[in-house]
Design a protein around this nucleic acid. Structure first.
Lengths: 154, 154
DNA sequence: GAAAATTACCCACAGCTACCCACAATTCTA
DNA sequence: TAGAATTGTGGGTAGCTGTGGGTAATTTTC
């Protein structure tokens, strides 16, 4: 049973099929609140992975973007990059969403994919890329983690 | 349906035909609210691209423009630019709108065109020009980008 | 007013997508 | 533990989408 709605935790291994579809873990789907209408938004992550949002969360981002003035070149560029790679995908009867070829290329996805719950969003990784990124992150300055620790109680 | 109306996301590649027609992605058309009457307004963008608005949204913008102080030179030139080149185009049975030769020239459009959903409007680009503009934008103040990202992206 | 040019509207069609069903493997239940 | 239900994966197909081109209607030009 899930605790709070639109919250995702845990790591799963799933396969991307020939049509670019990938299953969203049943537990994640059950965590979705009704007003999401079985729909996610997929977009580029800041790492080499795909981010998956419940559409309700994404709509908040959209609203904020709508409020940015298009008179500023920086704003326009920011909006363009934030929205350009986003695609709205309701999941089918089997619980799968459709990824765009562009996103599959970006995340270097092949058949096997790791799906990670990241609290308010979901990440989809190529296992190799995830492993490499993890290794890189170990080399980061540990004090960064300490800064974060002051903000978030784990 | 959850998808919010008159809201556009994603990047698509379409072709401008010999008659100056270009397809509006089916997903964008489906997002239009009924009172748009299958009609868009096309005009010059502030970048080297064409802006496409649902007519309902455009009407709001027009009233806002009227309320802007007519004293400021920037406002005057902006209004002149935005309104002067605006054209109303309903889309045909195949979902295509007609672009004016003037706009095609302004956006340096050739056969291949990139269509980008920018939340409340749509942009039409020549791929090369888009690529160049992207490169230019990287030189803009990165800290502003980060500020925006931190505020808006969850 | 007639010819030419332009525009608006219609049809055709290949390729693709959304939707459906099938089935094996796993989990749940009584 | 056996049966039932759910979950993850694969594949088929009807209908839609994007693109090109044709023709009648309208406008422009001489």
């Amino acid at each position: 049973m899930t605790i709070s709605k639109n919250t995702f935790t845990g790591e799963y291994s799933y396969s991307l099929d020939a049509k670019g579809r990938i299953n969203i873990p049943a537990k994640f789907r059950q965590s979705l609140s009704k007003n999401n209408d079985n729909t996610f938004v997929v977009t580029r992550g800041l790492d080499t992975c795909i981010w998956v949002y419940p559409i309700i969360i994404w709509q908040k981002i959209e609203t904020e973007l709508k409020n940015l003035s298009a008179l500023s070149a920086i704003n326009r560029s920011f909006i363009r990059n934030a929205v350009r790679y986003a695609a709205i995908t309701p999941y089918d009867k089997q619980g799968r969403i459709l990824l765009t070829p562009s996103l599959i290329r970006y995340a270097e996805l092949e058949k096997e994919a790791i799906i990670i719950g990241m609290v308010n969003k979901i990440e989809i990784w190529n296992p190799k890329t995830l492993y490499e990124t993890d290794k890189q992150n170990l080399k980061l300055d540990p004090s960064t983690f300490e800064d974060l620790a002051e903000k978030i109680i784990l």
